[in-house]
């Protein structure tokens, strides 16, 4: 923890950026883990909230000239608020239909933003010059730690138990007086808040955002794979999976720039075959 706090002042820009991007992935994986890991709604579209958070932050900075962290907070809240009506509609779908529906939603929002002149359309949205990487780093660190704290609370709370119950059998959970609709929408909104807040930091980090970067399928898929590798529906899985995957990817890229994607893909497949339930459940089984 102390290392993470002093890192921006002790490490060079490359390592600070590497830790920053790791924190973004870890945060995204934690956000995904709430709705998909705990509640069992496998989403392929949580990046929608990341993009919305980024654009809302950029819009607030440009239109109202507010301090960027306030704008990013507003972006996170907006993404969370958007999740309530969206969840009410989308969470009627189950399994692959929900996953595809969310993927379609991310693409729909991306296309809409590309078509809107107010968001800079396909050219993107520029912020006033003067990004501050250190403040973005600490913002992202705070969001990632907040996501971990939120997950610890969910894991130990009655709310978390209800989410796990509806993941296993929604109808039976309903017969035990669980307000299934309320709980899954709450989980969806919490899982939208985290990427929304991270998106706000991301636009300030780049000083610019365009639809393909804000709604990047790569971000979405990689954070999902990280959570799966670490252990879906566990407290520490997204952290372990996120840190491990980012570091392995970076190390392979540095050593084998021509083959790193092939090696990384092969390694990932091997890990998932060896540990189909992820690292944390495998460790639990071994030591319990």
């Amino acid at each position: 923890m102390a290392f993470l706090i002093v890192a921006p002042h002790r490490l060079n820009g490359y390592f600070v950026n590497l830790i920053y991007i790791t924190l973004v992935y870890v945060g995204l994986a934690y956000g995904w883990n709430i709705i998909s890991g705990y509640a069992g709604y496998f989403s392929f579209g949580q990046i929608t909230f990341f993009g919305l958070g980024a654009y809302a932050t950029g819009f607030a900075i440009n239109a109202f000239h507010v301090y960027w962290m306030l704008a990013a907070l507003a972006g996170g809240i907006l993404a969370c608020a958007f999740a309530f009506p969206l969840g009410y509609v989308m969470l009627r779908l189950r399994g692959p239909f929900f996953a595809m529906g969310m993927f379609g939603m991310a693409q729909t929002v991306r296309v809409l933003i590309t078509a809107l002149p107010a968001t800079g359309a396909g050219a993107g949205l520029f912020l006033p010059p003067g990004s501050d990487v250190t403040s973005v780093y600490y913002w992202t660190l705070a969001v990632a730690l907040g996501a971990i704290a939120l997950t610890i609370w969910i894991d130990r709370s009655a709310f978390g138990l209800r989410l796990q119950a509806l993941r296993e059998d929604e109808q039976v959970a309903g017969t035990l007086a669980v307000d299934v609709t309320r709980d899954k929408i709450a989980a969806f909104a919490l899982s939208a808040l985290i990427p929304g807040l991270l998106g706000g930091g991301f636009i300030y980090f780049l000083n610019y955002i365009e639809p393909d970067a804000a709604f990047s399928s790569r971000f979405d898929l990689q954070s999902i794979v990280m959570a799966i590798l670490g252990g879906v529906g566990t407290v520490w899985g997204p952290l372990i999976g996120g840190v491990l995957m980012t570091q392995i990817s970076e190390a392979l890229w540095a050593k084998f720039p021509q083959f790193y994607l092939m090696l990384f893909g092969g390694l990932l497949v091997a890990l998932l075959i060896l540990l189909p339930h992820g690292i944390v459940p495998a460790l639990k089984r071994r030591y319990e």
């Binding site: 009655a158 138990l161 209800r162 796990q164 119950a165 296993e168 059998d169 039976v172 959970a173 035990l176 669980v178």
Partner: peptide
Amino acid sequence: FREMSVEENLTMG
């Protein structure tokens, strides 16, 4: 809830 423990099942009740 098959993956949840006996105690968690009872608590849900």
